[in-house]
Amino acid sequence: MRFAVIVFPGSNCDHDTYHVIKHILGEEAQFVWHRETSLSNYDVVVIPGGFAYGDYLRTGAIAALSPIMQAVKKFAAGGGLVLGVCNGFQILVEAGLLPGALVANQSLRFISRKIHLKPEDTGSSLTAGLKLDRIYTMPVAHQAGNYLIQAAELAQLEDNGQIAFRYATAGGKVSTGANPNGSVANIAGVLNREKNIMGMMPHPERASESVVGSVDGLEIFKSIAGQA
């Protein structure tokens, strides 16, 4: 499969994402600069983490207006698979491709630590390879990962199976103590209604090699690539 890794000025997880897709997952990967306007040669688009444009305005707000985002919208409308990680999730939300909003962590501090994820839905091409009875461990590292959504919309997400991941304990319990940032209903990742776009705050690319302590993140990439 051919993966596009979008690079904005200020993206900083682009190399990590590329490294995992190309060298660990073994799929094709290409950097795509934010000024590009076409994504027709790709099967999957990944918007990596970072601080696009410094995030001096609301996170993701400027990047959402970049030329490449029109191409992402077109790509997604045609059914292409899109993954946004951390800042990529924020950008997808700002671009209106995913529901809800991401605001400052409850602690108002940057949070960098290992968390545990419970998958909530495997009914999408992005998550089909995951196991509902398994816990996936990987790092979070963000300032604004506190997921917010109105109650009525939350109910829709639940009904449609659009919640991809929730923060949980190592034992799989979805509890307040396992929630690092105050996200509503412990939500760590969501899907769009059509389930071909996924955004998540945790970093699967940082948990894809045993040398860095976990390979659980690789399972997510494998699922997306249909390798699982």
Binding site: H15, H19, F110, V212
Partner: peptide, 14 residues
């Protein structure tokens, strides 16, 4: 202190 620092980016931190 150090949970306010991103310590895992670049995927090299063992």
């Amino acid at each position: 202190v150090f949970e306010q620092y991103d310590s895992t980016i670049r995927t090299n931190t063992v």
